[in-house]
Design a protein around this nucleic acid. Structure first.
Lengths: 118, 118
DNA sequence: CGGTATCCCTCCGGATACTG
DNA sequence: CAGTATCCGGAGGGATACCG
């Protein structure tokens, strides 16, 4: 008992920080890169895997599924032999590109700052 | 042997995704909230702890130190009795506020989208 | 007041093997 | 080609007790 505060209630989550909602979608080690690559072209599973440095199939699938559930990417399956699956951003997914670019912009500034102070 | 790709080299990290650099600074469970609260006022250690839902002192200290090392927050110590320490954003730290707000904006859009599709 | 020190456990995610 | 299934190690982070 006696945690540092009462356990989180929905209101607190909602009122303080929609930032977290966004981070839950684009955060993590892989999603930014996946999104980054999908913003140019639609891509197939294997192409993504080759373009992502050392991701395991398990992880790639997991990240893609999450993005799919969040309505960010679209999974188009062509039941051919051999099978082909293409991933792309949804229209809603595209609305996140400016955010991604804002993050990238600041990231560059930050890297410069760090580099020069070293 | 035979990982899915050769281990990451610096170039790949650097060229593809400054987004990650930014996320390494503001990402995670606590930092967005800390930043969110600091963007209005300067705050003391205990005030922060009270305002953050259930954070342990260990975590709070850790997050603050990291933000400090990244040049985002400033730690001002007043050697009084009892001691007082005030945290605030540095000038460089303030440059990240627009990014935070972009994230928040999209987070709201996202939450609406989710809510309406349920 | 503003923190450390310590213990402990979850779960993230990597590696590898296998399948429709 | 586009994935599952399974195993497993290690970092992240919570709870609690204590210190200057």
């Amino acid at each position: 008992m006696a945690t540092y505060n009462k356990t989180v209630n929905e209101n607190e989550q909602r009122c303080c920080c929609p930032v977290e909602a966004t981070l839950s979608v684009i955060g993590g080690k892989w999603k930014p890169l996946i999104l980054w690559h999908l913003k140019e072209n639609t891509m197939r599973y294997n192409s993504l895997q080759q373009v992502l440095p050392g991701i395991s199939p398990r992880m790639l699938t997991k990240q893609l599924r999450e993005l799919e559930n969040d309505g960010i990417v679209n999974r188009e399956m062509y039941p051919e032999i051999p099978p082909r699956v293409e991933y792309s951003l949804t229209d809603f997914g595209r609305t996140i590109i400016p955010v991604l670019e804002a993050l990238a912009q600041w990231g560059i500034k930050y890297t410069d700052q760090k580099g020069s102070s070293k």
